[in-house]
Design a protein around this nucleic acid. Structure first.
Lengths: 150, 150
DNA sequence: ACTGAAAGACTACCAGT
DNA sequence: ACTGGTAGTCTTTCAGT
């Protein structure tokens, strides 16, 4: 599917405020509200837009500790298997494989350090996991949309 | 400010679909639409909800390469300074300080590996930066809301 | 792209605790 | 006083032309 400049403008507007009305977005990109809706529907259907979500302050909801955990496995582990095993952890926010030494990196959000410790024990208890290395986030400097605006 | 179970339910609903109507959210948590709107306004005003954003597939918009960059500085650098310097990079998605060796970790999204290389050179050119260590993301296993649902 | 019907948002006001 | 519900009005959305 091809994404043109108007589509990119719509995506930028929705990244800034996912609850903006179609009329507001239309005013920004020079389109009528129905035309915007059609494009948004198309972007969602094609998968370019995966969804719309609330950006939450974890601390305000009692989740004060965040960490990145590098997980090492013995032998070869498939991405599918990693997704299954690590995705089963409710505290896991995101996971990915990297070009470096660890087999996977995991971002976890926990209520406190004690809770983090408990999660780490659960990870180390997973089959074939040989070790973890954890970096606790001291402060989140900034956090913005995953795709730079046009 | 105190956040009760109904607030947590509203946040969960908005994390799942930030464009849900107040009536839909109300049906889920057992409240009328105006009552939901009042709570959402309060959650936004208090900062518990930072905003609403579209979740985008970077690859579909031509941003195919993602990496985590550990940045080392000479001497002591304040978080304010880090936010300023690293936040000035358009390709920077997020940055944070950690308990380990690097002074800051940076998540960057680029069009391709060549673009990433160019960003790394810009980072190494920042004042007092002594070095970087980069891990390219091979595959994103999963990505979910930053706060586990109730 | 325009129009009409349906749905949603928002404000004001009322009731119960 | 605080929290939620109801009603009325205005805007937005969406399926027809």
């Amino acid at each position: 599917m091809d994404v043109d400049d108007i589509d990119r403008g719509i995506v930028t507007a929705l990244q800034r405020d996912a609850r903006a009305t179609f009329a507001e977005i239309g005013a920004e990109v020079g389109l009528s509200a129905p035309a915007v809706k059609r494009r948004v529907d198309r972007l969602v259907a094609s998968g370019a837009i995966r969804g719309f979500t609330a950006v939450v302050d974890p601390a305000a909801l009692g989740w004060s500790t965040e960490a990145y955990v590098e997980v090492s496995y013995s032998g070869v582990v498939s991405p599918r298997r990693l997704t299954q095993d690590l995705g089963a952890l409710p505290e896991a926010v995101s996971a990915w494989t990297v070009s470096g030494a660890p087999d996977a990196v995991l971002q976890v959000q926990t209520r406190d350090v004690r809770h983090l410790e408990e999660v780490l024990q659960r990870i180390r208890g997973l089959p074939d996991v040989t070790g973890t290395q954890t970096e606790i986030v001291l402060s989140r400097l900034f956090q913005r949309a995953a795709v730079p605006p046009v």
